[in-house]
Simulated assay, not measured.
Amino acid sequence: MTREDILEELKKVLAYYTPDKEMLNSITPETDFVNDLKINSANLVDIIIEAEEKYDIEIDMDAAERIRDVGSCVDVIQEKINEKK
């Protein structure tokens, strides 16, 4: 699975949690969950859980702590998918 594929799927998940739907059109790897998308920490946990379920992966605390923006989230998901291979 490519980074672009993961990013597109992640955008679908983020749509539910992002209060400003206009921001969804401009999501990049540098987009910050808290500052740009206004997603709180509880919802970030929900996003991580959804990613775990969707990709059948486990994101441990160390990996979760690295997730600060969309790009780092994609990196963690891709890393965990690759670990399963």
Rank of each mutant, 00 (worst) to 15 (best):
L14G: 04
D46P: 04
A51G: 13
K11M: 01
M1P: 11
E83P: 10
R3E: 14
D46K: 04
A42R: 14
D75Q: 11
D62G: 08
L37T: 04
T2G: 06
E52H: 04
K38S: 10
N40C: 01
M23D: 10
D69S: 00
T18G: 03
I81D: 11
E65H: 12
A63E: 07
K21M: 03
P19V: 13
M1T: 02
T2M: 02
A15L: 09
L14D: 03
D46C: 11
K84S: 14
D56T: 11
M23R: 12
D20S: 09
E50A: 15
I49Y: 02
I59F: 06
K11C: 06
K85R: 14
F33N: 01
L24T: 10
S41P: 08
I6V: 14
S72L: 00
E30L: 06
I6Q: 00
T18W: 07
K85M: 13
L14M: 10
V34H: 12
L7Y: 09
I81E: 09
D36S: 08
D69P: 03
E58W: 09
K84Q: 15
I81Q: 08
I49N: 09
M23N: 12
I67W: 03
K12S: 13
P19R: 11
E79Q: 13
R68I: 07
V76E: 06
D5I: 05
E53T: 05
D75L: 01
T28S: 14
L7C: 11
